[in-house]
Design a protein around this nucleic acid. Structure first.
Lengths: 90, 90
DNA sequence: TTATTGTTTAGATAGTTGTCTAATTATCTA
DNA sequence: TAGATAATTAGACAACTATCTAAACAATAA
C-alpha cells in the first residue's frame, strides 16, 4: 500500500521553514516578498519552499498584477490528514 | 517558531516504507524478522526505518527473549498531530 | 562453550534536498 | 519601448537519507 499524495504532504510538512510559512499564511494571504521579510533565507530559497507547499496543495496562489498572493489551503490539509488517520483506524 | 518534535514526526511519516510499517503494526505488534517478510528491502534497511519511527516515538519496542516486538504508538501519534493542527488554528 | 537465530551497527555509495548567486520571466508605469 | 519591481528558474554544491554488504551484538539451545 502506497500513499503518493500523503507522502508528498508529509514531506512538505517536514521542514521547519515550511511549517513556519504555513503559520504565517494561516490568518492572511501574503506575497513571497512580504514573507521574505520574516525569514533569513534568500528569495529563491523561499520560492522553492512555496513551490513544494503548492505542489502538495497545502497553499493556493493568486496573481494580482505583479504580485502573487499565497494562502493556506486548510481544506486540503485536513482532507489528507484525515485520509491518513482513517487508514490507520481500519 | 520551530517544532522540533513535530518535524521529526513528519519526517518519520514522509517515507512510503515507514507508512507501510505503521499500517502493518496498527493491528498487532510484530518483530523485524516478521515485518521483513512483507518488504523487499534488506533487514538492516528495515531496522533503520524502525529506528527512525522509534526515535519519533511513533512505535514502541519490547524485547522478549531473542525477539523484539514493535507496536504502533497511537497515543503519541495523535498527540503530535493535534499539537500541529491546534497551532494552525490559533 | 559452540552453534543458531534475531537484530542492530559500521562503513560505503547513489540519490535527494536546501541553499546560494546569477539569469530569466512577468507585470506595471512612464 | 525602457525601466523598475516581483517572483521564479537554472545551475552548482554541501549536507542528508535510503540502501546495501559485512561485521558485531544479544539471547537461546545443544
Amino acid at each position: 500500500m502506497v500513499f503518493e499524495d500523503i507522502t508528498e504532504t508529509f514531506k512538505a510538512l517536514s521542514d521547519p521553514t515550511r511549517q513556519d510559512i504555513l503559520m504565517r499564511l494561516r490568518r492572511r494571504r501574503m506575497t513571497p516578498g512580504k514573507l521574505a521579510t520574516y525569514f533569513d533565507i534568500s528569495k529563491p530559497s523561499l520560492s522553492h519552499h512555496l513551490a513544494i507547499l503548492h505542489r502538495a496543495n497545502l497553499i493556493d496562489s493568486e496573481r494580482v498584477g505583479q504580485k502573487i498572493y499565497y494562502s493556506f489551503n486548510a481544506t486540503v490539509f485536513y482532507e489528507i490528514m484525515n485520509k491518513f488517520i482513517n487508514s490507520l483506524k481500519k
